[in-house]
Structures are given as structure tokens and as C-alpha cells.
Design a protein around this nucleic acid. Structure first.
Lengths: 196, 196
DNA sequence: ACATATACTGTAATTATATACAGTAAAATA
DNA sequence: TATTTTACTGTATATAATTACAGTATATGT
């Protein structure tokens, strides 16, 4: 989604706008008129480019046969977080999410990978809504960074120090010592499960 | 909406279906094909009737120029279901949700009460996105009605008959016998958890 | 009883739309 | 430097789609 050119983004936005306000996609002629192209083929070419880049789909022979490939949009969906033994997570926006059904403010979504939070009702592949914050209360579920790895765990703090606790008996706690490069990226405020 | 004839409802549903699965409205020819009309004008006449009755709008001269009037405003969130009342009846609607983050089409959200599906990662107070349907595949999670009770359970069907299975060891299966007043209201397609 | 609405088939014309082909030109990439 | 990609204009055509007109038949409302 990030390798679109400025013009391609304009065309993409016209398609989205049409869907929003009309309830159906635009024709080539409509795109051309809105963007002041003098040839409908300019729109056609851009559509082909957008298909090639995977952001839309065409239904050949069908009028207004354009489909958006994107999921949702507005809030960034960051690359998967390991919910098991920490897997390396990349700070890389996969796609954007466009409606936030959660009441609270969400800064980004993370896709859960693994079963370590299963006893908290958070399953593999769930989307976790995360509110960015640097500190957490005892017992909250947080997105924590340990060295270069990002992980979703319950945050526990007492006299013995900080522990990151999995909600799954077969996982053991991670102890955070002073020498660790540790930080809290945010706290989980809700989840979305798309496939049941 | 209640003064539509049976055929008009069919046409209306074809339009809704097309919007859901294709992302754009159908043509007259598509409607005719789906409903097995031999003339496109049958579809055209029904469209005119639907416009007259105020449930859709036409955009003259535009291909696929059909807009739903009432719809899309929101998805009802069903709280507790009053005994015997239709599930989406006004009395049961807790509020209306104006964004659907789930990829699939959702007819209503149901607020989960109790812990019977906890082992499927569905917790008390979760919102379950439900797609209305009358039948379900073996193993799917369904919203079922038994007499006056509406419940969320896993649907199991074999030679011994139909069972409604809770995902929690402390709950026992419900056996559906022939004398039961049983029906499937819909199937669960996703969940939203607002408070973690 | 009579008008109007429902529910179509069938034909046809006009317009809407997708889409290929032929170019031009600048920018990005190999 | 050569090649590909981007970004168009302009022409043309087959087909997709709307929509009017002419019928037939049954049902419903007044």
C-alpha cells in the first residue's frame, strides 16, 4: 500500500469516495471527470496499475466492477506480535484499519500469533487494539518490548520486580531484570476476531 | 418496509446481497438471472415499485444506480433477548453500531451473557457478530432458539441428532429432540471485546 | 364493476461503459 | 544507457445496461 504513486493514491481515493457517497464504485469516465483527465483511458491505466499493486480488484466486463482489497482503514495494523515465546516483530504497517468499534481510543492494532494468552480469551490471529502508553498498572495486558522483540503479556509488578506473565499454564513467566532493554509499547484495550 | 410484496422483498434482498458480496448493486439483467425472470423488464418494474415504496433510490442513467434508503445506517446490538420476541425486535436493541470492523457481513451483534463459550475464547460481555441464516454446518457456532430461549452454542449434528454444545466443561450438552421448538437464528462470524 | 397494482414476457433503441490500440513524454529503474 | 514504469491524450468499438413501449394475466382496492 505504501508503494502507490501520488496519482494512484488520488484514483484510489476517488474510488473510496464514490463507494462512500454513492454506494457503488465509479466508472472510468467518472474518475476521469473528477480528476480532470481528458481521456477515460487515463483512469483505465491507473486502475490496471492499482490491480497490479494489489489494492483493488477488477471484475472484467462488469460495469463499475471494482472492489477494494483493503480490510478496514484508518488505524495502522502493525506486523504480528508473538503471543508465545517472543518472535521478532517488525515495526511495519501492513495495512490500515478503517473503523474502530472499540469504545476506547486505539493507536494501532496488532495481530496475535500464538496461544500464550489463550486463558484470557485472546486467541491466535486475533487483532488486539492497543493504546500507546509508556507505563502500565499491575495486572494490565501490555505490549512490551524486550530487546528487539515485541510480546503481548500480562504486566505484573511487585517487590521482586517486573514479570511478564502469559495466560497459559504451559508458558513460564519472563523476568525483567535491570540489564534488560525493556519498555512498554502500549496496553491492550480490546480485541477483534475476524474468523471464528 | 412492511408493505412490500413477497416478490419485491426477493428483489430487495438480491440488491442487498449484491452490495454485500460484490460491493456494488446489481444490474437489471443480474436480478433477472438470479430470480429466473425471462425479461429484464421484470426487474425494472420491481425496481420502480421499490422506489415508489421508498425503500430504494434510483440514479437515472447510471449503471447499477441503485441506493438503499433505510439501510447501512447501523447494525443493531442485541442485549438480552426478551422471551419469545423476534431477535432483532426493537425492544431488544441495546444500541446501534455504526462501524463493522469484521470482514464478513454482519446482520446484528449479540452481547454474550455468561461463560458457556469461554473455551472458544468468547467471554462474558463480548459482542458476537452474527450473520442471519436458517441452517448451519456441523461445528459452527450458532445463535439458536430453543422454545423461548436464545443461546450461543456450537452446533453439532450426527446420526443421533442435533446437539448444542457449550465450550465449557461445566456445562452439559443440550439435546434437541423432535418435539422441541428449535430454530437457528444465525451463525457467529466474529467477535469484538470492548473491555479487556 | 372498474381502476389500479402486481407480475411478468418480449422487443428494441439509446446511452453507458469497458477496454483495446496508437501515440507522446517524462521519470524511475536496471 | 537501455528499459520499464508512470502519466497521460485521442480514437474506436463491442458489449453492458437503462429504459421505454407493447402485451398478457391475475389480484386487489374502491
Amino acid at each position: 500500500m505504501l508503494n502507490l504513486t501520488a496519482q494512484q493514491i488520488k484514483v484510489f481515493d476517488v474510488i473510496k469516495e464514490s463507494l462512500q457517497s454513492n454506494g457503488y464504485p465509479p466508472t472510468r469516465a467518472e474518475i476521469a471527470k473528477i480528476l480532470d483527465f481528458k481521456s477515460v483511458n487515463a483512469a483505465e491505466s491507473h486502475i490496471k496499475a492499482l490491480v497490479k499493486k494489489g489494492v483493488i480488484e477488477k471484475v472484467p466486463g462488469s460495469s463499475r466492477g471494482i472492489k477494494l482489497v483493503e480490510e478496514i482503514s484508518g488505524i495502522p495494523l502493525i506486523g504480528s506480535v508473538a503471543a508465545g515465546s517472543p518472535i521478532t516483530a517488525y515495526e511495519n504497517v501492513e495495512k490500515t484499519i478503517h473503523s474502530n468499534p472499540l469504545n476506547k481510543s486505539v493507536d494501532f492494532f496488532l495481530r496475535v500469533q500464538g496461544e500464550s494468552m489463550i486463558d484470557a480469551g485472546i486467541l491466535d490471529n486475533d487483532l488486539v487494539g492497543v493504546r500507546k502508553t509508556k507505563n502500565a498498572e499491575n495486572g494490565e495486558i501490555v505490549v512490551a518490548r524486550l530487546e528487539d522483540e515485541v510480546t503481548l503479556k500480562r504486566f505484573k509488578k511487585d517487590s521482586s520486580g517486573i514479570r511478564l506473565v502469559a495466560e497459559n499454564k504451559s508458558f513460564s513467566d519472563i523476568l525483567v531484570d535491570d540489564t534488560s532493554n525493556f519498555s512498554i509499547e502500549g496496553k491492550a484495550v480490546g480485541i477483534i476476531r475476524e474468523d471464528l
